[in-house]
Each structure stands twice: as structure tokens, then as C-alpha cells.
Amino acid sequence: MAVPAFKYVQKDCTKANFTLFTSICKGCGLCMEKCPVKCLEWSNELGVYGTPTVIPKDQDSCTGCGTCALVCPDCAITIERKKLK
């Protein structure tokens, strides 16, 4: 079987690149609860089941810790930390 292209949205935050794959996010919200700085909010982009997905509120609040990616049961979040300048 061919591997499908996964749709995604990205947010370029100060400390990390936040990628959310809308075609596998089911909108469960586990990540929002676990984010230590509570920086995630519901976004207008819909996920695979037609639910809202998540996105960092603003560019500065995400610390790039990767907790949201760790607790995602679907691997829908990728965090790429930026190198400190």
C-alpha cells in the first residue's frame, strides 16, 4: 500500500517549529492538558474526525519541551526545537 501524504499545519514559534498533522489528529485534547505552560488552544483547522485540532496560542509561549508530542496517541504533533542563538 502506498503511504498517503499527511496534511499538516505549522506554527513558527520562537523556540520551536510546531507541526500538527490534521489528517491524523482526532481532537482528543490530551496534549492541551499536559502542556506544562498551557500554551495550546483549539484551532479552526479540522482534524480527521471533523473536530477542532490544536495550535499554540502565540509564538512566544511554547517552550519546545515536546510534552504534547510525547502524549499524543496518534503521533500527530512534531516539535522541532530551534538552536539557541
Binding site: 500500500m1 502506498a2 503511504v3 498517503p4 489528517s23 491524523i24 482526532k26 481532537g27 482528543c28 485534547g29 490530551l30 480527521v48 474526525y49 473536530t51 502524549v71 496517541p73 496518534d74 503521533c75 500527530a76
Partner: peptide, 18 residues
């Protein structure tokens, strides 16, 4: 993981996925 079968079949937020 088999990418072509994802998203997997578990409910949103199901612990099986984790």
C-alpha cells in the same frame, strides 16, 4: 508503525495508542 494504516482505529484519546 505502518504509516498507511494511520490514523489508527482507536477512539480519540484512547490509551491503547499510547
Amino acid at each position: 508503525w505502518r504509516q498507511e494504516t494511520k490514523p489508527h482505529k482507536f477512539c480519540p484519546g484512547c490509551g491503547h495508542g499510547l
